[in-house]
Design a protein around this nucleic acid. Structure first.
Lengths: 198, 198
DNA sequence: CTGGGATGTTAGTCATCATTAACGTAATCG
DNA sequence: CGATTACGTTAATGATGACTAACATCCCAG
């Protein structure tokens, strides 16, 4: 049997707990607006204890963004390979992004604001994953609308991300139960229009 | 005659120059990621010289956001009072926001990220202007679709802002000449859909 | 002229902050 | 048992950064 020590068992939890707290703080005040002390305090430990779990503030951010972009990308790939056709894939991609935006608003916020503060080794990898995620969308859209130039599809995809990721800004306006179909409908309509324009 | 000294004549220019440079830096690295030295350096003067023009870093940010939100709000009011009907008003509001997003991406970015770093006196005022701007949109949408609950219209408005403000993220994907009608079309379609849903 | 305001400059000052050091304490494992 | 490991703690330490002080310049008004 793989011996699972309590330390091994707990370590992941602690790390996850820290990452979650940090995401909330980063989203609210920005990377440089949050101190190591703040993050520690948010999980009940104090300042330098963080260094038992992460090699530094930068590494913490890197791991956070790497994790988000991998998860998004993986979900997209999973959805694309298991859907019967492009129309269903697009639908599923919308659901993936909407779920993420509604359930992890802080992560989404940090994800598209703080890439500039990630140091170079990780930065490239995150960018790569983001690019692959976008390409997943563009590929599906291209299948559905072969006549539309890729540049336009890419621009439309970014615009749709902006629409879907607006959730953090309009928090509380509408219950998630209503927000979800609203976003889906709006995004679908926006995509249709983008592709038929002119 | 009102005596206009050269100092008076130049002061505004210098201040505007500083505000513009600061907006770019804040958009790229976040408020706390930019130093007074950085801002000064960007306009060819060095660090503490900024205090001849602004009482501090906070005041600089306050003025920047106050200016943006007033301008948006004023444009919206102007457009609303001069349009023949709600359909034309909505169209004009779209154009206002699109123009702003395309021509001043840095300001738009700072505007919806850094409110949290504005100290209290100004913060309330900026929030007020932002709220009034949103209400301008909601009012027009309500005229066009009286059956739709206001909460949904408000959520849809925020989503459309997210869509339109995505420009900074997809910079360079498409020339502004193509981006403009694309955004207009997508936003219009999204609004229609939001209001007809269910 | 000449004095003062506007606008800069450089050298402090004082906080804040990331990071490291030195040091406990439990629990685990041999 | 005994020692290693995982996790925390509280003091440095060293940078960086906002803001202030003290000191030039330039230019216009009287």
């Amino acid at each position: 049997m793989s011996t699972v020590s309590p330390s091994t068992r707990n370590r992941g939890n602690r790390r996850a707990e820290i990452l979650e707290a940090a995401a909330g703080l980063f989203a609210a005040r920005g990377f440089h607006g949050v101190s190591i002390e703040d993050i520690g305090g948010a999980v009940g430990i104090s300042g330098p204890a963080l260094y038992r779990h992460f090699s530094g503030k930068d590494a913490l951010l890197s791991e956070m963004l790497l994790d988000v972009s991998s998860r998004l990308r993986e979900s997209a790939v999973a959805v694309a390979t298991s859907s019967p056709g492009p129309a269903e894939t697009l639908d599923a991609l919308l659901n993936v992004q909407i779920t993420f935006a509604i359930e992890q608003p802080a992560l989404i916020t940090v994800h598209d604001r703080e890439l500039g503060n990630v140091p170079e080794p990780a930065r490239r990898q995150i960018r790569r994953l983001q690019r692959l995620y976008v390409e997943e969308w563009v590929t599906v859209l291209a299948e559905l609308h072969p006549a539309c130039p890729a540049a336009r599809l890419r621009a439309a995809t970014h615009a749709v991300f902006g629409l879907l990721n607006s959730t953090p800004h309009s928090a509380g306006e509408l219950p998630a139960q209503d927000m979800r179909p609203l976003l889906h409908t709006m995004a679908r309509a926006a995509i249709e229009a983008s592709v038929n324009a002119r």
